[in-house]
Amino acid sequence: MSSSSWLLLSLVAVTAAQSTIEEQAKTFLDKFNHEAEDLFYQSSLASWNYNTNITEENVQNMNNAGDKWSAFLKEQSTLAQMYPLQEIQNLTVKLQLQALQQNGSSVLSEDKSKRLNTILNTMSTIYSTGKVCNPDNPQECLLLEPGLNEIMANSLDYNERLWAWESWRSEVGKQLRPLYEEYVVLKNEMARANHYEDYGDYWRGDYEVNGVDGYDYSRGQLIEDVEHTFEEIKPLYEHLHAYVRAKLMNAYPSYISPIGCLPAHLLGDMWGRFWTNLYSLTVPFGQKPNIDVTDAMVDQAWDAQRIFKEAEKFFVSVGLPNMTQGFWENSMLTDPGNVQKAVCHPTAWDLGKGDFRILMCTKVTMDDFLTAHHEMGHIQYDMAYAAQPFLLRNGANEGFHEAVGEIMSLSAATPKHLKSIGLLSPDFQEDNETEINFLLKQALTIVGTLPFTYMLEKWRWMVFKGEIPKDQWMKKWWEMKREIVGVVEPVPHDETYCDPASLFHVSNDYSF
């Protein structure tokens, strides 16, 4: 037999072997998808029940369902290793196997995995149920939502704001400190077992692309791009910072340095994350009609249902689908009040099986009107990829998912749209002054938050990498806050605090 014939037969044999492996992989994935749908849905439903009704029974049910899901994933991840990716030609099959071969938290021992889940659930519970009591009246206690958040959004009393700011960190942050220390250790162990340098590197892996249509993007490039983007917006932020400082000097004349940092408790919310609520103090042309339409919403008797129905109309107007019937029947759109304790931070849920929901303790404000559009943007994205195989139902990356939500809320905030839905009067006219007011309001929300987020994530990356010793977490946190964000702590904090974890995203294990 000629050498060319042998070569042809060899190629046929290799192709047949690849085809056999690929067919086996497809069969394996079909079985996995069928089983995963049910187990993931049960786990998601148990998590939803806990988040909307925080009880010991629900946390136990959530843990049990989560353990079943984790055990299943660990088993299936091991089985998926049997299919070598280099022998799979079908890109859809390869991407699913690649996702499943990534072990995630299931790489930890059973004891450590359970401990990590306990830590995460405990931190979430402390954050959502933590109360601050009035020292003069111990029976008068406030949760973060709505009590403390209400103070931080609306109060102009310097000392009341300081009390709310400090009490939240003292009551909740200190409880979270030992848990967060354990969390860092276990998450790093999980990341390294998955061949990442640390948990920050694991997060950045979400943005990594290897040879898809000839395109590559590394975790290191992400760090470079983040640094570059921050340097680009820094001059604009510094101008905004100086303008806000001048306006705060008028409101709090004896508390603000004309050349120094801004006190952290005066920036519009509990964390200084969004400066939106400073608009009334900083509006350049106050004689113009108010483009913050909160009062109009209240006057027109809007409620949470109306807010979300208007958001749905907005999405339908640009060619996107209505929310499902189940969305309206199962979402929690208002604070249950004293009936039950719930996690009030707005979140969009894709539970699986076409079950999409939003959890939000909606208030009738323009801020929540825009947040509703943001969260519904997440749901629209979830619905758009719902037909994909189970392992591919995700956003391109976390940042893109947020961008989908944010672009919709930005569009909904324009005076033209607000006028079209009757929240600005029919005779409202846009001119240079109203446009400047609008742009300032947008800058308070968007530009003001960028250094906050950059600095927070930089601190977390450094902590996970071990570049900040545990006994210097708070020292470095406030050094970076002053240097990068231009914000100063109103009272000193020692290493018993854990100020970063006083933010939902940190205590609940979300990256930005």
Score class of each variant (00 low, 15 high):
Thr92Ser: 02
Ile54Cys: 10
Trp48Asp: 08
Leu79Lys: 10
Glu35Ser: 15
Ala65Asn: 08
Thr27Val: 10
Gln60Glu: 04
Gln102Asp: 01
Asn49Glu: 00
Ala71Asn: 02
Glu22Pro: 12
Asn90Leu: 00
Gln60Cys: 06
Asp67Ser: 03
Gln89Asp: 00
Ala25Pro: 14
Tyr41Arg: 00
Asp30Val: 00
Glu23Asn: 03
Glu35Gly: 08
Tyr41Thr: 15
Asp38Val: 15
Lys26Leu: 04
Asn49His: 02
Met82His: 07
Ile21Asp: 13
Thr20Gln: 10
Asn90Met: 00
Leu73Ser: 09
Thr92Phe: 00
Lys74Gly: 03
Gln102Arg: 11
Val93Asn: 12
Phe40Leu: 06
Gln76Pro: 13
Leu73Lys: 06
Gln76Met: 00
Leu29Tyr: 05
Gln89His: 02
Ile21Tyr: 13
Ala65Gly: 09
Leu39Ser: 07
Asn51Leu: 10
Ala25Val: 00
Thr92Pro: 00
Asp38Ala: 15
Ile54Ala: 09
Ala71Val: 05
Pro84Val: 13
Ala71Gly: 03
Glu23Met: 01
Gln24Phe: 15
Tyr83Leu: 02
Asp38Tyr: 14
Asn33Asp: 01
Phe40His: 06
Leu79Arg: 01
Leu39Gly: 02
Asn49Ala: 00
Glu75Ser: 00
Gln76Ile: 00
Ala71Cys: 02
Glu56Ile: 01
Leu95Gln: 03
Gln102Val: 02
Thr20Lys: 08
Val93Pro: 00
Asn51Phe: 02
Thr92Cys: 00
Ile54Arg: 11
His34Phe: 15
Gln89Ile: 00
Leu39Tyr: 03
Ile54Phe: 11
Leu79Gly: 12
Ile21Ala: 11
Asn64Val: 06
Met82Tyr: 03
Gln24Trp: 13
Gln102Gly: 05
Phe72Ala: 11
Leu45Asp: 14
Thr20Met: 10
Leu79His: 09
Lys74Gln: 08
Leu45Lys: 14
Thr20Tyr: 13
Tyr41Asp: 15
Ser19Asp: 13
Gln60Ile: 05
Ile21His: 12
Lys31Tyr: 01
Thr27His: 00
Glu57Tyr: 04
Ser19Glu: 15
Gln98Pro: 13
Tyr41Glu: 15
Asp67Glu: 04
Gln60Ala: 09
Glu23Trp: 01
Val59Gly: 08
Gln96Ile: 10
Asp38Glu: 11
Asp38Leu: 14
Ile21Leu: 12
Asn61Gly: 07
Phe40Ala: 02
Trp69Glu: 11
Lys26His: 10
Leu39Asn: 02
Asn33Arg: 14
Phe72His: 00
Asn51Ile: 11
Lys31His: 10
Glu23Ser: 01
Leu79Ser: 07
Ile54His: 11
Gln60Arg: 07
Ala25Thr: 02
Asn51Thr: 14
Leu45Cys: 14
Ser19Val: 01
Gln60Trp: 09
Asn49Trp: 02
Lys68Met: 11
Val93Ala: 13
Glu35His: 12
Asn64Asp: 10
Asp67Trp: 05
Leu91Asn: 00
Leu91Thr: 02
Glu75Lys: 01
Gln24Thr: 00
Leu79Val: 00
Lys26Phe: 08
Thr27Trp: 00
Trp48Tyr: 05
Tyr83Pro: 14
Asn61Ala: 06
Leu95Trp: 02
Phe72Gln: 10
Tyr83Cys: 02
Glu22Cys: 10
Tyr50Asp: 13
Asn49Asp: 04
Met82Ile: 14
His34Leu: 15
Asn51Ala: 03
Leu91Lys: 01
Val59Ile: 10
Leu45Gly: 12
Ala46Phe: 12
Gln42Lys: 02
Ala65Leu: 04
Trp48Leu: 10
Asn61Cys: 07
Leu79Met: 00
Pro84Ala: 10
Lys68Asn: 07
Asp30Trp: 14
Tyr83His: 15
Lys26Pro: 13
Glu22Ser: 07
Ala25Lys: 14
Pro84Glu: 09
Thr92Ala: 00
Glu56Thr: 05
Ala46Asn: 11
Glu75Thr: 00
Tyr50Trp: 03
Ala71Asp: 06
Asn90Gly: 00
Thr92Gln: 00
Lys74Cys: 02
Asn51Lys: 09
Asn90Trp: 00
Lys74Trp: 06
Asn61Met: 02
Lys68Arg: 03
Gln89Met: 05
Glu22Arg: 13
Trp69Arg: 03
Ala71Arg: 01
Thr27Pro: 03
Glu35Met: 01
Ala46Val: 12
Ala65Ser: 12
Phe40Met: 01
Ala71Ser: 06
Ser19Gly: 13
Phe72Lys: 02
Tyr50Gly: 09
Leu39Ile: 01
Asn61Pro: 08
Ile21Phe: 12
Ala65Ile: 01
Asn33Leu: 13
His34Asp: 15
Glu37Ile: 13
His34Asn: 13
Pro84Lys: 11
Ser19Tyr: 04
Leu91Arg: 01
Thr20Ala: 08
Ala25Asn: 14
His34Ser: 01
Gln98Cys: 02
Glu22Gly: 09
Val59Ala: 08
Trp69Gln: 05
Val93Tyr: 10
Val59Ser: 06
Leu95Glu: 05
Ile21Val: 05
Val59Lys: 05
Leu39Trp: 08
Glu35Cys: 00
Thr27Cys: 00
Glu35Gln: 02
Leu29Gln: 13
Glu56Leu: 04
Tyr50Phe: 01
Gln102Cys: 06
Asp38Met: 15
His34Arg: 14
Lys74Phe: 06
Lys68Tyr: 12
